[in-house]
Amino acid sequence: MSLSPGDRVAGELADSGVPVPDIVIEPDADQLARAVAEALVARLAAAQTLRGTASVVLTGGTIGIAVLERVAGLAAEPVRETVDWSAVDVWWGDERFVPADDDDRNEKAARRALLDAVGVDPARVHAMPASDSGFATPEDAAARYADELAAAAGDGGTVPRFDVLLLGMGPEGHVASIFPDSPAIDDERPVFAVRDCPKPPPTRISLGFGAIAAADEVWLVVSGEGKAEAVARAVSGADPRELPAAGVHGTRATRWLLDAAAAADLPGPGAGT
């Protein structure tokens, strides 16, 4: 990692009582994708060393898919850590309720970028239902995904263990399909349907804040100057109702993984340089 300014940001935020996440900045989007891919491989490999299996929650978006492409590339390189992809459970943080072959599907992009290339066990790929998969409404599809999460959790839990949950962020601060000032912010279910999203396609399925916060580690991977203001506000403790990214965290760690453009508005001497 080329620059880790978490300490300098912490110095300005500590007095406010805002919990300070780990912040890592890479020079550009390409190097960010590569660094996140390397870190993800290392984290999943470590989980498998401890338990034999690992789990990851994927996100879509340009930078999210770029990370998966880099992970696929690493599988062919002689890196220190290796992942047994047949023993990785793959989940999604949100999905567009469109037909399975629609290019808007996060699942389709993830399969093309990574999953089809690394030998993931099909039984461990937990895709959110598509609109043509037999569910009449997104609410029915969300209920089915909630059942799948609970079955994997066992012992009466609502979500299984997630080693890493990846999130992108929109320029207005949305994460998964939780948008500012939307009913999803107050929805306490682990997964639910989202209608009338301000960003197309308008009908989606999303994990809620509670399910996201159950992950061991939440990684927010953000690139581009158009998101710099939202990044700075989220890190500084904005109201999650106005900026949902400010309301997500992991049980063990929360990491903001940024390129220099997205980090440009962070507080502290030399931030964004």
Rank of each mutant, 00 (worst) to 15 (best):
L50F: 13
G250D: 05
D155N: 11
D104N: 14
V90H: 01
A142P: 03
G237S: 05
V67C: 11
S2Q: 13
A150M: 05
V71C: 04
K227F: 03
K227Y: 01
P129T: 05
A143L: 11
S16F: 13
Q31A: 14
A47M: 07
A152H: 02
G226Q: 06
R161N: 04
L32W: 03
R96W: 04
R144H: 15
G224Q: 12
G173N: 07
A184Y: 03
P200Y: 08
R51P: 02
A211G: 02
G272N: 04
E217D: 09
V118R: 09
A141L: 08
R161K: 07
V36T: 09
G226S: 07
A113P: 00
S206T: 13
S131F: 08
S2Y: 12
A29N: 01
A109D: 05
V18T: 14
A153M: 13
R255C: 15
L40C: 02
I205Y: 03
L115H: 00
T53K: 11
A151R: 10
G61L: 11
E242R: 14
P171K: 13
D140S: 06
T82N: 06
E217G: 01
G154C: 04
A76T: 11
P267M: 13
H249T: 14
G270V: 02
G224L: 11
A153R: 12
R189S: 14
D181W: 06
D140H: 07
V67H: 08
R255F: 13
R70E: 15
R189K: 07
I25A: 10
E225F: 11
G6M: 09
E69H: 10
G134T: 04
G247S: 10
P240A: 11
E217Q: 12
P267D: 12
W256C: 09
R112W: 10
D15E: 15
L165F: 14
T49H: 13
D181F: 08
D186S: 15
A72W: 06
G270K: 05
A110C: 08
V20H: 00
V175W: 10
P183G: 05
D259I: 03
W256Y: 15
R195C: 06
A142D: 06
R111P: 01
R144D: 15
S182L: 00
C197T: 06
V191C: 15
A123W: 01
S86Q: 14
L3W: 14
L207I: 00
V71I: 15
V56F: 06
F179P: 00
A10C: 10
Q48A: 01
G270R: 08
S133V: 06
A213F: 05
G268K: 07
G11H: 12
H126F: 05
L266E: 10
A234H: 08
D147R: 11
N106P: 00
A76F: 10
P201C: 01
A130S: 11
D181S: 07
A10W: 09
G268T: 03
A66R: 14
R124F: 10
V218P: 02
R252H: 15
